[in-house]
């Protein structure tokens, strides 16, 4: 007999070693997430996939599935908590959807739509961050970085280049580039690296091609994020 966990009203089978997120995805259930990408080790940092496991809040992407768990995910309380987290991410950075080249294909924006976010309950910080335009093929716009660490994992585990790291703590946290000058242009990243295409928001974007997809045909124009999962690297 296969072991199962209960996610909301669904009996979900799982294999040994799977996380709650993996079991849910295999069963076709969507749990909101930003820093999770099935291609990489889970990070558990964005907290969007927080679920209640037997009454205790855990991140679904890191919590192993254990037979008999009762998982609460698609409830008004968890949705509300996730919406608050998305609001915090918007308030923490500089996310100007109106003229962002990632608009329409952005996981953060799509999640805000999905969670019915119309405004922000938090005061915007408007942090001063500087764009790194030193690379001939890529732009690193720190304004839009949400510190999901996907580029770090992609560069380390897939490209084996270790181009990115997280520096600083708390509100001084920033994405740092591993090069002598700290500039992307002096790093070993190349335009076709996985790290150059994994960003779920518009922080690491290819040059040339901005706004090339007309409104109406962008990744999330026709469907919600719960239907396509994530838009890493898409325009």
């Amino acid at each position: 007999m296969t072991d199962t966990i209960t996610i909301d009203d669904h009996q979900v089978p799982f294999e040994a070693g799977q996380t709650i997120m993996e079991a849910a995805r295999a069963a076709g259930l969507y749990i909101e997430h930003l820093c999770y990408n099935p291609a990489y080790q889970p990070h558990g940092s964005c907290k969007l996939c927080s679920v209640k496991v037997d009454g205790v809040i855990q991140t679904a992407c890191t919590m192993p599935a254990i037979a008999g768990q009762k998982v609460e995910s698609d409830s008004p309380e968890m949705k509300s908590r996730r919406k608050t987290l998305v609001e915090m991410i918007f308030a923490e950075g500089n996310h100007y959807c109106a003229f962002c080249i990632k608009s329409g294909s952005c996981d953060l924006q799509a999640l805000a739509y999905h969670l019915d976010m119309h405004e922000n309950s938090f005061n915007h910080r408007y942090p001063v961050r500087v764009i790194d335009a030193s690379h001939p093929d890529l732009i690193l716009d720190h304004d839009r970085c949400i510190f999901c660490g996907l580029c770090i994992r992609a560069s380390r585990d897939q490209d084996h280049k270790n181009v990115f790291t997280m520096a600083g703590r708390g509100k001084a946290t920033r994405l740092a580039v591993n090069s002598e000058t700290g500039k992307l242009g002096d790093s070993t990243i190349a335009a076709d690296d996985a790290a150059a295409h994994v960003c779920p928001v518009g922080a690491i974007m290819p040059r040339r091609g901005a706004y090339s997809t007309p409104i109406g045909e962008r990744y999330f124009d026709a469907r919600g994020i719960d239907e396509i999962d994530n838009a890493s690297g898409k325009l």
Binding site: N94, H95, A98, H118, E119, V128
Partner: peptide
């Protein structure tokens, strides 16, 4: 009723906050 990006998150004018 707040309408538009500028009223809700500062929008384009807020770019000067940089």
């Amino acid at each position: 009723v707040a309408v538009g990006a500028c009223a809700i998150n500062g929008g384009l004018p807020a770019m000067r906050n940089h």
